[in-house]
Amino acid sequence: MNGLEDLYREIILDHYRSPRNRGELESPPAQRVEGFNPLCGDEVVVYVQVDGDRVTDIRIAGQGCSISQSSASLMSAAVKGKTVAEARDLIRTFKAMMQVHEASLEGDGGEAEAVDPEALGELAALQGVVKFPVRIKCATLSWNTLTQGLDEAEAG
């Protein structure tokens, strides 16, 4: 099972088995955005409630693999209560972590944005995903969907 424990950390399995902020929000007022991974058929629905400049509530629905579901759960816990700007920073940092592998594969790893795992807290558990390039899309699905939700909320 070498290598697998990097992917399936205990925190990830915990969020997969007991997902946080699972459910729906009334939309409107919340934004409801769907994300699909056409390769595996996974789908995520992100409900995000933005009041003023703050993400006051978030719910996750849909179904998918342990990586996509735990990533969505960890994301929901991380952004709830944050300002929209902080949430966007977090999205940027998380996606930079997910890009490290692709960059280093191309031999220009030095150009990848340096990521401080401290800034990511529990989310750093998903770092192991970069060793499994096919799964990166699973991990980033909910984050891309949230970005769309925040864009729509701001466009209002």
């Binding site: 697998l4 595996c40 996974d42 998918g64 693999c65 342990s66 990586i67 499994f132 799964r135």
Partner: peptide, 9 residues
């Protein structure tokens, strides 16, 4: 177990 996870393991 999701099929994607199964295939990975």
């Amino acid at each position: 177990v999701h099929p994607h996870d199964l295939a990975q393991v």
